[in-house]
């Protein structure tokens, strides 16, 4: 198992490049396809944006990303100590509607579910913990 790498930053939208670089660099060492790399980074973007926008309505807070690769499976965990919120609980949007009927929102989490192999939410030790796993 690769040693777990950790990035801890203020949960701000402006820090997103660091988050995406962290995910990209970690899997680069494993010869991932551009598509897998993009899917992992994009999944993390969707999750991180939610945390940056909504986790700390009262002000500043932190976010931590833990990443590792074990037996060819990449695992990333996004942790925050903000308002308890399970983004996976939301019903999936209807992706069969016509363009005119489509809602503008609600696609992000749905995309995460389709881009990674597993996504889990837990609230533990006063923290939101979102975990994604994907075979490299």
């Amino acid at each position: 198992m690769s040693e777990e790498q950790v990035l801890r930053i203020p949960a701000e939208l402006e820090r997103m490049d660091e988050v995406l670089d962290f995910v990209g660099s970690l899997v680069d060492a494993y010869g991932v396809t551009p598509q897998t790399r993009t899917q992992l980074r994009m999944a993390m973007e969707e999750l991180y944006v939610n945390v940056a926008h909504y986790a700390y309505p009262a002000g500043d807070g932190w976010a931590e990303i833990r990443g590792s690769v074990d037996d060819g499976v990449a695992t990333f965990k996004l942790i925050d100590a903000g308002t308890p919120f399970d983004p996976l609980a939301k019903p999936d949007p209807d992706v069969t509607l016509s363009g005119e009927e489509r809602e503008i929102g609600g696609l992000g989490i749905y995309m995460v579910k389709s881009m990674v192999d597993e996504v889990e939410y837990a609230y533990e030790d006063g923290c939101n913990q979102l975990t994604i796993r994907k075979q490299l």
Partner: peptide, 17 residues
Amino acid sequence: GESLLDVLQNTGLDVVF
């Protein structure tokens, strides 16, 4: 490209656009 097509197909937007 492949990654974008995947996203569009997964969200059903490939048939919209």
